[in-house]
Design a protein around this nucleic acid. Structure first.
Lengths: 294, 294
DNA sequence: TCCATATCTAACTCCAGCTTACATAAATTG
DNA sequence: CAATTTATGTAAGCTGGAGTTAGATATGGA
């Protein structure tokens, strides 16, 4: 280990806290010190490394490219350390299982099944983080994440829970029951989008759709998205499995189904390594639950 | 990030250095401080966490289970930080590519091919670490490892270079040219083993052989192993691909070939993420080299 | 232009973390 | 079994890193 290359650790800690919070005051709060302390540490770290980590134009600080690289390493580095400390001091056992998922999956799949888990493992405490952003598992104390994708998360282990393509749907009230609207028609219709990052928005971005159609978009909270679609308030991009029954019942029409390889779907994403008992129980349970549902 | 759970960083650093070196004096040298400083840091870390990290019975310190857990997290945590710092300060580009491999593979496969790489990329500096122990790539600044296994390294990306089972071989001079020796006969023959951890020793351990046959073992440096086998000095466990020609020419006889699934072989093991240019060149080159050889 | 909201700087304080020197304890050896 | 070697532990004092407070400075928006 090349310890000589390791800068003063307090500077790294301050920088990591700043990168996490985005401003020096909040970083100071996070570490329990004053904002001036953070400011000094940031400056001394930059002079020590002789690398610009922060872009000081403007009244707030932004990370440079080098700063982003460093902050990522620090986030996972300190995160792993904190995790290990929690592990050996027993803080981790006492803490509830943190499950990160998207609002869409939480509402449509996970929450209806949770009572069964609670019944089977009454001792396990769960904590759902329905945060749509992709996060580094170890840094935030997340035990397991459930994400839509093709199973390729570098450094992570993924297990398919629900195989399903993306689909564009709308209520017959909006697009009519018979004729298939053309692409141009779709662009003229109102669209409902989920707030923030979500499966649907990722799909739109991947297909470069969002740029072309700035008009007629309505941002709604994820849990209201499907209700809005059924209600004819707009066109929605979502995961097919969640609207299968609506389509069958005629409440929604599938306007376009993504014909990707069938590796896309919701995956259980965990870190390699040993799992604590509560996590193991949850993972085993959800895998069985998924295989029975599929 | 739960910064409250992070102990004083100097204590963690001292502990990591101690875990790496195994004694307080060497740890002090590594960090450029006195042994007393390490000793104090270790003690204060233990009292801070209220967890026994060190077993103080005997005159030297040993890690407890909790200590091992923590040290692993620290090793990879600090390692990643150092790596990121080297990255953004440009120290990394200047440094030669570090390739960790086993002596067996280095001698039998890699080194004969290296001149071709040098000819193609004269600017790239290489550094072979023929260390048999499995190491954490990021902590020691290793860019890529080449290891025998089934491709399952959690958190790593593995690419098959040379598919081959293990085989037990000996010279006809030792076991005769015709009759196949029985298992009991084998136990009576002298065995050559590589020093330290190696593919062959791992195989022996996996099969529980080493315990039963303490007599007649000779430990030799890896590069002399095959010469000794051809010379009739003992029975050797090795990777079949390296003795294929010796077997065909009658210099060695295959006494037993492992009939495992064909996922076993030498793999190129890298960390997920972006590679620096020199590494990318090497990886591309060695993959092509391997596919042409196979 | 003024105000709110940021970050930066200066001066001062203090204790974490270091060094040196000595103590202690366990293996090793004659 | 005492002497020696080789570890780690402890004490005491020094010093600079890391923090605080208070005030300066810069930017963006009303």
């Amino acid at each position: 280990m090349e310890w000589r290359h390791l800068p003063p650790l307090s500077g790294l800690r301050a920088f990591a806290a700043f990168a996490e919070t985005g401003n020096v005051v909040a970083a100071g709060d996070a570490l329990g010190v004053s904002h001036a302390a953070i400011s000094q540490q940031l400056r001394s770290l930059e002079t020590h490394l002789d690398v610009a980590l922060l872009d000081r134009s403007g009244r707030s600080l932004a990370l440079t490219d080098a700063g982003v690289v460093l902050s990522r390493a620090l986030r996972s580095g300190f995160g792993g350390m904190i995790e290990a400390v929690e592990e050996i001091t027993g803080l981790r056992d006492a803490r509830p299982l943190h499950i990160s998922t998207t609002p869409m999956f939480a509402v449509s799949w996970l929450m209806p099944r949770l009572p069964a888990f609670r019944a089977k493992y009454p001792d396990a405490d769960l904590m759902l983080d329905p945060t749509p952003e992709v996060i580094a598992l170890s840094a935030d104390g997340i035990d397991v994440a459930i994400r839509y994708g093709n199973g390729n998360w570098p450094g992570m282990e993924a297990h398919m829970l629900l195989r399903s393509p993306m689909v564009v749907v709308a209520a017959p009230a909006l697009v009519g029951a018979d004729e298939m609207p053309s692409v141009d028609d779709l662009a003229d219709l109102p669209w409902l989008e989920e707030l923030g990052v979500s499966e649907g928005n990722n799909w739109l971005r991947r297909h470069g759709v969002s740029r072309g159609m700035t008009r007629g978009q309505t941002k709604v909270p994820g849990n209201l998205l499907l209700d809005g679609a059924r209600d004819g308030q707009g066109v929605v991009v979502t995961v097919r499995a969640f609207v299968e029954r609506d389509i069958a019942a005629g409440r929604l029409r599938a306007l376009f189904t993504e014909d990707e390889d069938d590796s896309f779907g919701y995956h259980l994403v965990t870190r390699p390594g040993v799992m604590r008992p509560a996590l193991k129980a949850f993972v085993t349970w959800i895998k069985r639950e998924a295989s029975e549902a599929g």
